[in-house]
Each structure stands twice: as C-alpha cells, then as structure tokens.
Amino acid sequence: MAHDAVGGGEHTGHAGMGHGAMDMAPAGIPLASGAEDRDGLELDVLHARLGPVLAHWPSGLVLRCTLQGDVIVDAEARLIDAGPSAPNPRISSRHLFVARRCDNAAGLLALAGFDDAASHARRVRDAVLKAGGTAHASRQLYRLRRMVRRSWLLRWSLRRVGPLTERDLARWHLPEHLRGDVRDRLLSMLDRAAQGLAQADGQSTHDQPAVLIEAVADLVRGWDLAAARLIVASLDLEALTADREVSRV
C-alpha cells in the first residue's frame, strides 16, 4: 500500500537525527531543524523517504529526500532487493518491452492528473499482454499517442520540467531517448512502444539501457515534489528488475 510507505517513511525518517533532549520530541517525534532554503529564508528541514513501494513509482527504488517545504533540496537514491527477476516464459520479451513502456506512460499520465489518458495507456498495456491482441493494441496505441500529442494543457503542464541537454546525458551516461523535458520523454516513451509493437516477433528488441541510480537523485534535486515525481516517472525505468539499473559507484 502506498499509504504505508508514505506514513512510515515520514515518521521513521526522523529516527537517528540527534536532537539531544527528549523534551523537544513531543509524541516521540523529534522536532525538525532549520536551514537556509533556496530563497534565503530559514525553513524547517524534513527527511522523508520516497519508495520503495508507492503508486506510479518504479518499485524497489528508494529516494531519501531532504525536504524544505515541498522542495527537494537533497536526495540520495538506492535500490532494495536488487537481484535478477524471473522472466515470464509465456510472454515474449518484445511484448514485455512494449507493456512496460505503456505502464510507465500510464504512471506518468496519472501523476500529471490526466486520468483518461492514463486509463487508456493501461488498456493498451493489457491488450499487448493478451495473446493475439497486437492489432487491437496498435490501433489503441495510435489513438493514445494522438490524444497525448494534441493535449495543449498537458504540454503546458509538462514542458520545461526536468530538461536534459546533450551534455547532461553524457554526464550521467543516460540513453539518447531521455533528451528534452518530461513531455518529450513521454512522447518518446510512446513512440518506442509503437516501434516495439511494429517489429516482427523474431527480431531482437533493444534492451532497455541501464540508467544510473545516482543520476535519479541528481535529476530531482532542486525541484518540488510534484515535479520530481514527474521527472522520475519520465525516466522510463524498469520496475521490479532492479538488476538492470546498475550502480557504477
């Protein structure tokens, strides 16, 4: 449950922060300490954890965030239970690839509050995973891409969030398809799903390149919680296959 992860993270996040006297810890929760925020005001610092289990979140990823208000001033990422996931023999890797892209797009759209498109993306995912649903799925996917591309309100909401230039990509060894802002990445996610669907079954699918876990922490630093959630969702990570997102440090 998302609630449990959230509630637990909030309270246990304080544990281990030495505040000395217990009388400054009403109900057993130590008070927050202050620090200067990005506008030069002194603001309380809260340590909270995002993940490992949270709705529309790559499961297994844990972000330990230092929050001031709802701005993430510092973050540290790690993976729990990293290990090989058992491949599902009944579903081809190509279909899994497409389904994962659709699922990630659904998560991103849900975080952006575009519920209709999110439901649509989930239906495409289900159609892909169902045997013999490819033709139906590609029609649905075409409609979804048109819906997402045409929504000017979605463009307004996602543009200029988490921009990645060529230099940023090189710095964090990120794959080429993550260039641009969150909206560009959403469109590229759907495009790659369409490409995967159009390929013949025998053809080898490109393996999703690994994304550095440290990069995730760097990318969300300085953004507020809502934007940070959008940025993480737009990185199109593989959920539950923690072995793919390697740490090179």
């Binding site: 609630h3 529309h56 975080l111 509050g113 919680l225 809502a226 959630r229």
Partner: peptide, 12 residues
C-alpha cells in the same frame, strides 16, 4: 485541474 492537493504524487 485543481486536484494536486489530493494528487497521486503525494499518495492522496
């Protein structure tokens, strides 16, 4: 459009 106060990104 005014539901970010109840948004899924902050678990409700």
């Amino acid at each position: 459009p005014f539901s970010p106060a109840l948004g899924p990104d902050v678990a409700g």
